[in-house]
Design a protein around this nucleic acid. Structure first.
Lengths: 352, 352
DNA sequence: TTCCATCCGTAAAACGTTTTAAGATCTGGA
DNA sequence: TCCAGATCTTAAAACGTTTTACGGATGGAA
């Protein structure tokens, strides 16, 4: 146990430990490193000294001399978004279990800052760099990621893509995703089964991979139920609450609703849309059914039926893959999603 | 500009830069360190070489040799709570502005883990360690904090307490707080002005400093308005949403409400209580008025009138105080709070 | 008893920087 | 012309660890 009362603890070096144990510093390092276990007697002498002196190795010296750095980096767009926060929580929890420190970098979704952050993390010597979240899968994306991956690999580190498209099987990165298509299909089917056929999809964020997956699921379900696909029901927009509000309000302004249900791209958008509906005298689920995606804090507050995404599990898995598995690379995990039924969907009384 | 295409960039050391510039490594270090500016000619030669080689100093070597480490640490109870997330966001933003990396440690509110994390951050050589949030101000607290502060000071670092009680004027730590008492007084006064006298205080978390501040403000306002203080209206509880729900539900079970307004200790509790009220056929604000505290995401979703706490500003200020001011210590800043009016308070029709 | 193999421990080099103390070059005044 | 002083540069030590290459015991076999 650490002594909480050491007043100004002059750094205890490995030299001190060696002196106290009556051995050389290399021996101490070996005992601590776990490699090549020396004579049990020596070992216990050293351990005792370590304990007595409450010695902790200097992480910088350790990193400098080329040892693994006990740090795992996570790069996010933002911490205030519950999506990222929960993933980060998972990573952090798993990292802590393995005595790893967590370095968090924030990019604001900007590719240049992402690059800078990844470089920084490499300099810092992180065991692995976990890149989280939604991104535009344009021409440059895969190239950029492959560059990150090889730069990190060259530095003895590793790239993990979390909730982002993989670089393909056998690619240079570890990959953890969740099932956007399946979840969206399930959500849409849920509405269709309740008799809804005019389903407004709110928040089609063209190009962004997560969004593409969700809308694909939406379309698949429509097809499976033999319902005609009306492009006019797919509304483009970003994924903030305010956007959901704006979109729904302007939609309602142009006339009475031409839909009986709403599938919001995420819970925040759903929350915004809900507010706009209420302001227009429409009640959920009495007048309009609504379903969201993510199952993050706003969802429970507003009684929203939604698709549960295991965010924390996502982070934990990402961390576990690099900490427990060998640094194989090319691994790929897809986590499942499922519907959480609350109180925002009601069967359509009669078909039109 | 970094070259995004370097395939496996063997580390560029300061030695390489020195060689290319035709000077010694010490000169390079000086030029980069900004101290003691050498001859302009030398300076530009070095800068050119640095640019050509795209050199970045190894942070570990830098830290090892005793320089400031360009890292600022933040210690939180949790990242998923919006409260902490917003503060972290502020710290991170300010740190990025100063080219600082952000190290985040999570304690789960456990004192032992807090100790361990602070030690770790000290080992890591952080410029400053920012401790955020609610805590029990028991006998040990000030002692513990003073120990952290001196241990950090001995390592050339600095302790910042953010939203926690100060160690007293001239103490060894920098301190940033926000006005819990004032905000609670304003909120309560807002209800009192609307004619409410029976105000239920929900979430009195005895011992926790933030909570103590808020309930003190509540009592002060009652006194100022000459309204008798009924201890039966102060309900103990934690600060989660589920707790708010539970407390309100059990309160309503024991009979019709003996209050006309609710002051929830924070927005999450308010959200929970709101749900319980609704389930019991009571409408906000028609039947019961409600006010919260924090102005974090749930508040806007549910149209809650609440007290705005400048969380991000709190984090930014904390970071700025250590990054811009000299490392004076003993500084203390109190940020203001103010009411945000939404739609959860209505004047009481007639006095009883 | 002598020699060889086997372990275990140690000294020393390396990691990449900062910084101190000292060396080299130059300017200007006597 | 020479020297004091100022100015700029450099060599070398230090930071705390890991690790490679080596030396010294220790034990068993011949």
């Amino acid at each position: 146990m650490p002594q909480p009362s050491d007043p100004a603890p002059r750094r205890v070096t490995i030299r001190d430990v060696a002196a106290r144990a009556g051995v050389s510093i290399a021996t101490v390092s070996r005992v601590l490193g776990g490699t090549y276990p020396p004579a049990p007697a020596t070992r216990s002498k050293v351990m005792r000294a370590v304990h007595d002196l409450d010695y902790v190795a200097n992480p910088h010296a350790r990193a400098l001399s080329g040892a693994a750095s006990k740090t795992i980096a996570i790069v996010l767009n933002s911490v205030v978004s519950p999506y990222y926060a929960h993933v980060a929580q998972g990573v952090q929890a798993e990292a802590a279990r393995h005595d790893r420190l967590c370095l968090i970098g924030i990019t604001g979704g900007d590719a240049a800052r992402e690059l800078a952050t990844v470089r920084l993390m490499r300099e810092e010597g992180a065991d692995a760099v976990i890149l989280v979240g939604n991104v535009v899968d344009d021409d440059g994306y895969k190239t950029r990621m492959a560059e990150y991956a090889s730069a990190l690999a060259a530095a003895g580190s590793q790239l993990v893509l979390c909730g982002r498209p993989s670089l393909g099987p056998g690619g240079p990165s570890v990959n953890v995703e969740f099932d956007n298509v399946g979840g969206a299909r399930a959500a849409t089917s849920h509405l269709l089964s309740a008799g809804h056929e005019r389903i407004l999809y709110l928040g089609n964020r063209v190009g962004y991979t997560t969004s593409e997956g969700r809308i694909a699921g939406y379309r698949e379900a429509l097809t499976a139920f033999g319902v005609a696909h009306d492009p006019g029901l797919e509304v483009e927009g970003t994924w903030e609450r305010a956007e959901g509000y704006r979109l729904m309000r302007s939609r309602l302004r142009s006339g009475p609703p031409d839909f009986t249900a709403v599938f919001a791209a995420n819970d925040q958008v759903a929350a915004g849309a809900l507010k706009a509906l209420r302001e227009n005298g429409l009640r959920v689920p009495d007048d309009i059914s609504m379903i969201g995606y993510d199952d993050l804090p706003p969802a429970d507050d507003i009684g929203l039926t939604t698709v549960h995404v295991p965010h924390e599990e996502l982070g934990r898995t990402a961390a576990r893959m690099v900490l427990e598995r060998g640094s194989g690379g090319g691994e790929h995990v897809m986590l499942g999603t499922h519907i959480v039924v609350r109180d925002s969907v009601r069967p359509l009384a009669r078909k039109r």
